[in-house]
């Protein structure tokens, strides 16, 4: 219990591959939550997560601040989810990219909405990936805008706008659902 990220990273870089297993176990569920919500599909999320861990190991020497390994890994995962998200959108039409198309998307059947879990996933899936990413990083992962800007490469004002729009759209989506 107690071994810091920095110590584990240093051990891995010194050749103790096993130490990386402890880092994977430490961050698996935490980062998995973001990937699952971002991608809306558990299998896609696990693939993205696995790939992020492997990529991070491969380029571990470029982790400038081993004590902040988690933040660095997070950035790799966010990027990885973007490419997966693109593929998933093309494959399953999961995401609606055009804001104007929101109102045209049919509501799921009552059976499909039976579970709150499904409803939340459905609602998130109606946001654009950019809005969903900003919303999750801000409200679920609890990041500051400065941190979000570092992770995503977007400007702070743009991120604030995305979060605001995401909230507004989710409220609209749920008002629609209440009328059904």
């Amino acid at each position: 219990m107690g071994t810091s990220d920095g110590e584990l990273v240093r051990r891995v870089l010194a050749g103790d591959t096993g130490a990386y297993a402890a880092l994977v176990a430490r961050y698996r569920d935490r980062l998995g939550r973001y990937a699952v919500h971002m991608l809306g599909d558990r299998q896609d999320a696990e693939e993205a997560l696995q790939d992020a861990f492997v990529r991070a190991h491969r380029s571990l020497a470029r982790c400038d601040d081993p004590e902040r390994f988690g933040a660095w890994l997070y950035g790799i995962l966010v990027n990885r989810c973007r490419t997966t998200g693109g593929r998933a959108a093309r494959r399953a039409r999961l995401f609606v990219r055009d804001d104007a198309a929101l109102s045209g998307v049919p509501l799921p059947s009552p059976a499909e909405r039976a579970e709150w879990d499904d409803t939340v996933r459905w609602a998130l899936g109606r946001l654009t990936p950019e809005y969903r990413e900003a919303f999750l990083l801000k409200h679920v992962e609890d990041l500051e805008y400065e941190e979000m800007a570092q992770l995503t490469g977007a400007g702070i004002s743009a991120l604030k706008m995305r979060v605001k729009r995401a909230r507004e759209q989710l409220q609209i989506i749920f008002r629609e659902a209440e009328r059904v």
Partner: peptide, 12 residues
């Protein structure tokens, strides 16, 4: 969120 722990083995 609980991710399948077998993921760790796949990563390693």
């Amino acid at each position: 969120v609980q991710i399948d722990p077998a993921l760790d083995g796949r990563v390693m």
